[in-house]
């Protein structure tokens, strides 16, 4: 029987149906848990990018704001839905006043699309906090863009220095080796062995900040 023409085909078919069935049941039962975690992580990152400004305006410490998630998120953070603006936008509101904005941005890395959250000042010119939400870079090399020292280089940086330009409004930054110390404000340390990924992060920020500034400054919020 095992040597017949049909047996291997039928056998393989039964195996595929059996294992695909098990995986489908397992995925269905875990789906909501996985989604809840993804939403939770995303909202925590939004709060993280806005926490410093909320802290300044409310007097509450940054650690306290982060520890009080999800209450602090519901209290201070609001998602905005803007016509013709193709990014997710969140605003931090303290005592009725907007203190900062947070944008979901995307860019091309070496191996796939990177997704990040960046908070800006209310004039959209300065990056407050920047965090990578999702990336597909090489573990141990490009994936190190999620390390704190690399991300913190972008904190509180003026990105829009030429507000009157109709095309490119962003300030010029350049990378130096990871082991060197920056000598000017325009120098940032790149990740060793991940030149393309480091450059991609800067390119993404430059492109997205340009888009955000040019689109948001004319909107009535």
């Amino acid at each position: 029987m095992k040597d017949s023409f049909w047996f291997p085909i039928v056998f393989m078919l039964i195996m595929v149906i059996f294992f695909a069935g098990i995986l489908a049941v397992m995925y269905r039962t875990s789906e909501s848990k996985i989604q809840d975690y993804q939403i939770d992580t995303y909202q925590r990152t939004v709060l993280k990018t806005l926490a410093a400004k909320i802290s300044e305006a409310s007097g509450q410490s940054r650690a306290e704001i982060l520890a009080n998630y999800p209450m602090s998120y519901e209290r201070y953070v609001q998602e905005l839905f803007l016509d013709g603006f193709e990014r997710r936008v969140f605003q931090a509101i303290v005592a009725g006043e907007v203190v900062a904005y947070c944008f979901e941005i995307k860019g091309n890395g070496l191996w796939g699309t990177m997704q990040a959250l960046v908070s800006t000042s209310t004039d959209f010119r300065t990056i407050l906090v920047f965090d990578i939400v999702d990336q597909k870079e090489t573990p141990g090399l490009g994936a190190r863009i999620q390390e704190e020292w690399f991300l913190q280089q972008f904190y509180n940086r003026l990105f829009v220095s030429n507000p009157e330009s109709p095309t490119d409004v962003t300030q010029n930054y350049e990378f130096i080796a990871e082991t060197q110390s920056p000598e000017t404000d325009q120098q940032l340390r790149r990740i060793t062995g991940a030149t393309i990924t480091s450059d991609s992060v800067l390119k993404m920020l430059k492109h997205e900040l340009n888009y955000i500034y040019n689109n948001m400054r004319t909107k009535e919020l």
């Binding site: 995986l23 397992m26 875990s30 975690y37």
Partner: peptide, 13 residues
Amino acid sequence: SYVIIVDIFLKAN
């Protein structure tokens, strides 16, 4: 199939 089971278990738990 078993690897995917491990992957889903880790992602959920």
